[in-house]
């Protein structure tokens, strides 16, 4: 219990001079030391990034930027737009690393989700011409990756793959197109030649089945 006799503040006649936050220099030194030991451990690196450690941030960039650019490019379908989205994603990672909680999932998943959500956000705000995704044909970037080919192989991943396989094929395809390529309901309506409301209903039913399956 502190015993200092400071009485500045609420009860005193002179104005309160603002909150006094503790100086956490020891904490930040500790994190910096942890980085050198952590090497390629993204979880530990993100902890250091949360303490504004630029060296740790550069290492996170080196370890993740190719994967995140791949994610961004599939959704944005334009190198310049994908780069802009990725720049903002890394700014998000810099500013919000303190929100990463290793208890909820691995750091690689967290940065991947940040990049994907940012790419979706940038594409939606730019209002990508809808027809492009439908008429361009199947370029490599527009093919849907096969979730079964992923190297993750963890329990959550296996469960997700199994549950996606339980969906009707066209619904599974829609979910994956929305997820990997950022397709909208309108994109899907054009591709599957069905009204937007029907697409919405199919997807909601599909998500509900997925939810039930994943909770099993």
């Amino acid at each position: 219990m502190p015993t200092g006799a400071t009485t500045t503040g609420v009860g005193a006649t002179k104005p309160f001079d603002g909150p006094r936050f503790p100086i956490d220099s020891t904490m930040r030194r500790g994190d910096a030391a942890a980085v050198t030991e952590a090497d390629d451990d993204i979880d530990a690196l993100l902890g250091a990034v949360a303490s504004q450690d630029r060296a740790a941030f550069r290492r996170v960039y080196e370890l993740t930027s190719a994967k995140l650019f791949g994610i961004s490019l599939r959704i944005c379908r334009d190198r310049d737009i994908a780069e802009e989205a990725l720049q903002i994603a890394f700014l998000d990672i810099w500013r919000q690393a303190d929100r990463f909680d290793p208890a909820r999932g691995p750091g690689m998943a967290w940065v991947s989700v940040v990049a994907r959500n940012r790419a979706i956000d940038v594409v939606r705000r730019r209002g990508r011409e809808r027809n492009r995704s439908v008429d361009d044909g199947e370029t490599a970037l527009q093919s849907v990756p096969d979730p079964r080919q992923a190297t993750d192989g963890g329990v959550d991943h296996m469960a997700l793959v199994a549950c996606l396989d339980e969906l009707e094929e066209h619904v599974r395809d829609m979910v994956l197109r929305a997820y990997y390529l950022g397709e909208t309901r309108e994109d899907l309506a054009a591709r599957f030649d069905a009204p937007v409301n029907t697409i919405k209903t199919w997807l909601r039913r599909g998500l509900q089945s997925l939810r039930g399956c994943l909770d099993r």
Partner: peptide
């Protein structure tokens, strides 16, 4: 849900950034 879907991103091919 973000975390439920996240394992899917593992299948995305890396592309060298600019």
């Amino acid at each position: 849900w973000d975390l439920r879907f996240a394992p899917l991103l593992d299948a995305v091919e890396p592309v060298a950034p600019p």
